[in-house]
Simulated assay, not measured.
Amino acid sequence: MIKATLLKTTGEKIAIDLPENGTELKLSQALDFELKCFDLFEWLKVNVDNFSQKKGEYLIRLVDCLNVVYGDIVDFFDLKGDYINDIDNEKINQHFETLKGDYNKDEAFDSLMGIFNILYMVIRTTKPELRELDHFVYKGKEFVFPKILKDRLFNDPMFPSPSVKQSIETLNVMSWLEDIKNSKDEKITEQVKTDNIYHKYLTELSVLLIEKGKKLPTEEAEFNMFIREQRVFFEDIDFQTALDVEFWFENYYDSLRKDRENYYYFNSNEKNTPKNGDELTALNRAKAVNDDIFKKIGYKSIINRLLELGAFRGRDKTDIESVNNAPMTDAVKLISIENSQ
């Protein structure tokens, strides 16, 4: 953290911590800050030609961004004049130039724009990473973090398989968010999208970060209760960890897609394309039924497919438990083989 000291109009000093990386900023703060920045930059586009007459309004909007992180700590309008009133064109130009590249930590002591720049650049430069350590502690609890293994020969990342249940729930929430982002519904504002992105991250964390020594519940009512509780538990998670968990699963699923043995899981069996009209009609009817099922239950249709195949029977007490707790990697290969017949 960068330690910054701000001066109030009374001369009183206020100490604030400025993050230096994504682990020092909450996920919720990063998302809300980005949303406020979106509003700020949209306003700037409209007012760029007469900005010199609207510097005051710009600073008010900039403070709205800062309040996302520091609103409970400091009243920015009660600071010494240097931070707000005595802002010349040189400082403003420096502010905009900084947004294009690297930030200067010393700027945090110059003005509100300097504080803004640091937050903006930390969020902008935080990139997801694949972790090799599976140890993660949060709020005093130890979790098994989705990690990678390195291929000693080619140094390529290898992904230990999550369970079918973990994968399906993650794929469903990813698909659900994509539908919201692509929706043309005018009621789905940027605020609504941000709220749902946050919900999606919390769901992924709840599903993929399992406390050491415990298992993800598979019975539906118990699972839903567990997820609701875990979403609340992970509300203070840091920005970096949320990005890393999302990035891990995206790379894991992409690795399945690149595996040639999984071709017929991701693609239809081209060898068995119908040759006549009746076969084509039947195939289209079957696809329509499958599409309808997918719209209703999403990737959970995979569970039904595995149950029909009798896959993983005997691994757990019941067939559905056996499927839910089975490795997703094995399930994908099994379905691909079956689809290739």
Results as ranks from 00 to 15, higher is better:
residue 301 S to E: 14
residue 306 L to Q: 03
residue 304 N to S: 15
residue 317 K to T: 15
residue 299 Y to N: 09
residue 328 M to G: 01
residue 322 S to D: 05
residue 330 D to L: 02
residue 299 Y to T: 04
residue 297 I to K: 12
residue 298 G to I: 07
residue 295 K to C: 09
residue 301 S to M: 12
residue 321 E to Y: 05
residue 319 D to V: 06
residue 330 D to M: 05
residue 311 A to L: 04
residue 301 S to W: 04
residue 302 I to F: 06
residue 296 K to R: 15
residue 325 N to D: 12
residue 307 L to I: 14
residue 308 E to T: 10
residue 296 K to V: 15
residue 298 G to S: 10
residue 297 I to M: 14
residue 302 I to T: 06
residue 307 L to E: 12
residue 309 L to E: 12
residue 322 S to E: 05
residue 317 K to I: 11
residue 330 D to G: 02
residue 331 A to Y: 00
residue 300 K to D: 08
residue 305 R to C: 08
residue 332 V to A: 02
residue 320 I to W: 10
residue 318 T to Y: 12
residue 302 I to A: 01
residue 308 E to N: 13
residue 336 S to A: 14
residue 313 R to W: 09
residue 330 D to N: 08
residue 326 A to E: 04
residue 324 N to G: 01
residue 307 L to A: 11
residue 327 P to S: 07
residue 313 R to F: 10
residue 331 A to Q: 01
residue 298 G to R: 05
residue 314 G to Q: 09
residue 305 R to W: 09
residue 317 K to H: 13
residue 320 I to H: 06
residue 313 R to T: 11
residue 309 L to A: 11
residue 318 T to G: 06
residue 328 M to K: 02
residue 318 T to L: 07
residue 326 A to D: 03
residue 335 I to F: 06
residue 301 S to Q: 14
residue 309 L to H: 05
residue 310 G to F: 10
residue 302 I to D: 04
residue 305 R to M: 13
residue 308 E to Q: 11
residue 314 G to V: 12
residue 314 G to I: 12
residue 301 S to R: 10
residue 322 S to V: 05
residue 298 G to W: 04
residue 309 L to V: 07
residue 318 T to W: 12
residue 298 G to L: 06
residue 318 T to V: 09
residue 334 L to W: 05
residue 315 R to C: 03
residue 330 D to F: 00
residue 316 D to A: 09
residue 336 S to R: 03
residue 310 G to C: 08
residue 300 K to L: 08
residue 332 V to T: 03
residue 315 R to V: 12
residue 304 N to L: 14
residue 316 D to R: 10
residue 322 S to M: 04
residue 299 Y to F: 11
residue 319 D to H: 11
residue 296 K to W: 10
residue 301 S to F: 06
residue 312 F to C: 03
residue 330 D to W: 02
residue 298 G to V: 06
residue 326 A to M: 05
residue 336 S to Y: 03
residue 324 N to I: 00
residue 315 R to P: 01
residue 295 K to R: 14
residue 306 L to F: 10
residue 313 R to E: 12
residue 297 I to P: 00
residue 306 L to M: 14
residue 321 E to R: 04
residue 311 A to S: 12
residue 311 A to D: 04
residue 326 A to C: 07
residue 325 N to C: 05
residue 323 V to H: 02
residue 313 R to I: 09
residue 335 I to W: 05
residue 330 D to I: 00
residue 319 D to L: 14
residue 311 A to E: 06
residue 309 L to G: 02
residue 329 T to V: 09
residue 321 E to T: 03
residue 319 D to R: 04
residue 305 R to F: 13
residue 302 I to S: 01
residue 295 K to S: 14
residue 315 R to K: 14
residue 299 Y to C: 04
residue 323 V to G: 00
residue 322 S to Y: 05
residue 307 L to F: 07
residue 304 N to A: 14
residue 322 S to P: 03
residue 319 D to P: 06
residue 303 I to V: 15
residue 300 K to Y: 11
residue 322 S to H: 02
residue 325 N to M: 08
residue 331 A to V: 04
